[in-house]
């Protein structure tokens, strides 16, 4: 056995410069990502030429390349709109709330789940928490309406039983940043906590053993082992979310608020505003222009965030 092993090692060593040489390894690694790169190129970069629609007066019969250039004209209606500041502020603020509280909630739930000893209980709870992800916002909005309904909503029924008068939630814009954030968390905490849970799964159990032997209690273990190891994941997911900070989940903002005008001051975001404007004049160039703006802003923010992260924890940077 030992003999064949040494001959095997020898023959391998001889071929080393061919099989294990740096270039051969490089080729192998590149080959792994070749098909995916091709797919991304085909389905994402080839159609990217369409971005120019934002700068054109798009006519169906002239196509993307035949239509006339209009420079920045398509951007005017949005940038010079009197509502521009309000909806931009709403979009950024609300998305920030979602990212921040969403992350706190998901990480907390993920960590707590990880501490659960009973695997049966863990599985049960995860299954329940993941349910909201299956419901579209249209349906979820009906549920929210059932709860927030001024006349026979559950929330008002509960308030009444405590002696508090019913509140018409749909006429109180101040309450909605909270309502929207809670709804966003409700929908995503299940899935996101599963991601962080998986992250915790990947931590070498030896680390926990060693800490326990050293006398660390649960709380200390969480702070010194669990969280730090999740940090790269948290940072990465946060950077990715920042890229979309100028975009709104249309279903959430439109369906949940039932498009009630009274709530616009705190819930009107870029995507709902655009939807409203396009009702009469449906112009592809204009909606493309806004989409382009959303991309640019997200891009700039991500680059800034990424550079900052590189200074602090280079391995966690996106690129």
């Amino acid at each position: 056995m030992a003999e064949s092993k040494s001959t095997a090692v020898k023959s391998v060593k001889n071929k080393k410069h061919m099989i294990n040489g740096k270039t051969a390894e490089k080729l192998r690694l590149y080959s792994l990502c070749a098909i995916p790169v091709f797919l991304v190129f085909l389905f994402a970069y080839v159609p990217m030429g369409g971005i120019i629609i934002a700068f054109k007066d798009y006519r169906f019969n002239l196509g993307i390349f035949g239509s006339e250039w209009t420079g920045l004209k398509n951007f005017e209606f949005f940038l010079k709109s009197p509502s521009f500041l309000l909806i931009t502020r709403n979009t950024l603020f609300l998305n920030f709330l979602f990212i921040f509280f969403g992350t706190v909630a998901s990480v907390s739930v993920g960590v707590l789940l990880f501490e659960m000893r009973s695997t049966k209980a863990t599985k049960l709870f995860q299954t329940v928490m993941i349910m909201p992800n299956f419901i579209s916002w249209v349906i979820a909005a009906y549920m929210a309406y059932a709860i927030l309904n001024p006349q026979y909503g559950m929330l008002n029924a509960v308030l009444n039983s405590f002696g508090i008068e019913s509140i018409d939630w749909y006429s109180k814009p101040e309450a909605w940043p909270a309502i929207l954030t809670i709804s966003s968390i409700w929908k995503t905490v299940g899935i996101n906590s599963v991601i962080y849970y998986a992250g915790l799964m990947g931590i070498d159990t030896g680390l926990f053993e060693a800490a326990r032997i050293d006398g660390a209690n649960k709380w200390q273990q969480i702070i010194h082992i669990s969280l730090p190891n999740l940090l790269s994941l948290i940072i990465m997911l946060t950077i990715l979310s920042i890229g979309n900070i100028f975009r709104a989940d249309f279903g959430l903002f439109y369906q949940l608020t039932r498009d009630v005008a009274a709530l616009y001051p705190t819930t009107d975001v870029i995507d709902t505003y655009i939807f409203r404007t396009m009702r009469v004049v449906g112009d592809m160039g204009m909606s493309a222009a806004v989409g382009f703006l959303q991309s640019i802003v997200g891009f700039v923010l991500v680059v800034i965030t990424n550079l900052t992260v590189k200074k602090i924890k280079p391995e966690s940077a996106l690129f």
Partner: peptide
């Protein structure tokens, strides 16, 4: 990585993708 990430933010939109 950048090649990949860029596509998350920028897209040609529905029409060119549909045509493709």
């Amino acid at each position: 990585s950048f090649f990949l990430y860029f596509t998350m933010l920028f897209s040609g939109g529905l029409v060119p993708t549909y045509i493709l």
